[in-house]
Deep mutational scan, measured.
Amino acid sequence: SKTSNTIRVFLPNKQRTVVNVRNGMSLHDCLMKALKVRG
């Protein structure tokens, strides 16, 4: 089974995003990807 960790990230202006960290990806990469999608 694939394991994925879901991390809630609290952003300024009362924004919130959820990042799924996959195996083999660093938290930083996942964060940058999530913020790019939002931006």
Rank of each mutant, 00 (worst) to 15 (best):
Q15P: 01
L31V: 07
K14N: 15
Q15E: 15
T6V: 15
H28R: 12
R38H: 00
G39V: 04
K2R: 10
V19F: 13
N5Y: 08
V18G: 02
T17N: 02
N13C: 15
F10V: 02
M32K: 08
K33N: 03
T3P: 14
C30S: 11
S1G: 12
N20S: 08
N13G: 03
G24D: 07
G39C: 10
D29H: 14
K33I: 01
V9K: 05
G24Y: 05
V37E: 01
V18A: 09
V19L: 11
N5I: 07
K36M: 15
A34G: 08
K14W: 05
C30Y: 03
K2V: 03
G39E: 06
L11R: 01
M25L: 10
R16H: 12
G39D: 14
V21I: 05
T6P: 06
R22D: 03
N13H: 06
R38P: 02
M25R: 12
I7D: 05
V37L: 10
N23S: 11
V19E: 05
R22P: 14
L31T: 05
S1I: 07
P12S: 01
K36R: 10
K36S: 14
L31R: 00
L27Q: 00
K36T: 08
P12R: 01
V37W: 07
A34V: 03
I7L: 11
S4N: 12
N5S: 15
N13T: 15
S26I: 15
M25V: 12
M25T: 13
G24V: 14
V21L: 09
V21G: 14
L31A: 05
S1C: 12
S26T: 15
T3S: 09
T6R: 08
A34E: 02
V9M: 02
S1T: 13
T17I: 01
R8H: 06
S26C: 13
K14I: 07
R16L: 06
Q15K: 03
I7S: 01
S4G: 10
K14M: 09
G24A: 11
L35Q: 01
K14S: 05
N5H: 12
T17F: 05
F10Y: 08
V19G: 01
L11P: 00
V37A: 08
C30W: 00
S26N: 10
N5T: 09
R22H: 12
V21M: 05
R22N: 15
N20I: 13
N5G: 05
C30R: 02
K33R: 09
R38S: 02
R16S: 06
N23T: 10
G24C: 13
L35P: 00
V9G: 01
F10T: 05
N20E: 05
G39S: 13
M32I: 09
N13I: 06
V18T: 14
S1A: 05
L35A: 05
R8C: 07
N5V: 07
T6K: 07
K2Q: 15
S26H: 05
D29E: 06
V9A: 12
H28Y: 10
R22C: 11
D29R: 05
R22G: 09
D29Y: 13
T6S: 10
A34P: 07
H28N: 07
K33E: 01
H28P: 01
S1L: 11
K14E: 08
H28Q: 14
V18E: 03
N13K: 08
N23C: 15
N20D: 06
R38Y: 05
V18F: 03
G24R: 12
K36D: 05
L27P: 00
L27V: 15
T6M: 11
R22F: 03
L31Q: 00
N13D: 10
K36E: 06
V18L: 04
R8S: 06
V37M: 13
S26R: 08
L31P: 00
S1H: 14
V21F: 05
L35M: 11
F10C: 06
S4C: 11
Q15H: 01
R8L: 11
G39A: 10
P12L: 01
K14R: 09
H28L: 09
M32A: 09
K36Q: 13
I7V: 11
D29V: 09
L11M: 08
F10I: 02
A34S: 10
D29N: 13
N13S: 11
R22L: 14
K33T: 02
G39R: 07
C30G: 08
M32R: 05
S1Q: 15
C30F: 04
N20T: 08
S4T: 15
T3N: 07
R22S: 07
N23K: 09
K2E: 09
P12Q: 02
V19A: 10
T3A: 15
D29G: 13
H28S: 03
K33G: 02
V19T: 11
V18I: 13
N20Y: 13
M25I: 10
K36N: 15
M32S: 05
V18D: 01
R38L: 02
R8G: 02
R16C: 06
Q15L: 02
L11V: 04
I7F: 08
N23Y: 12
K14T: 07
T17A: 06
F10H: 14
K2M: 11
M25K: 13
V21S: 05
K33L: 05
P12T: 03
K2N: 13
T17P: 00
I7N: 00
V19I: 12
L11Q: 00
S26D: 02
K2G: 15
S1R: 13
H28C: 14
L31M: 06
V21A: 10
N20K: 14
N13Y: 08
T6L: 07
L27K: 03
Q15R: 01
K33M: 05
S1P: 14
M25E: 03
R38G: 00
S4I: 08
M32T: 12
T17S: 10
R38C: 00
H28D: 11
I7P: 03
N5K: 09
R38Q: 05
S1N: 14
T17R: 05
V9E: 00
K36I: 11
N20H: 12
D29A: 12
N23H: 09
F10S: 12
F10P: 05
V9T: 10
V37G: 03
S4R: 14
C30I: 07
R16G: 06
I7T: 03
N5D: 09
K33D: 03
N23D: 12
L27M: 13
R16P: 00
R8P: 02
P12A: 02
V19D: 00
V9L: 02
S4D: 15
I7M: 09
K33Q: 04
G24S: 14
F10L: 06
S4V: 05
M32V: 11
K2T: 08
L35R: 01
K14Q: 06
T6A: 08
M32L: 13
L35V: 06
S26G: 09
L27R: 00
P12M: 05
T3I: 11
V21E: 00
N23I: 07
A34T: 04
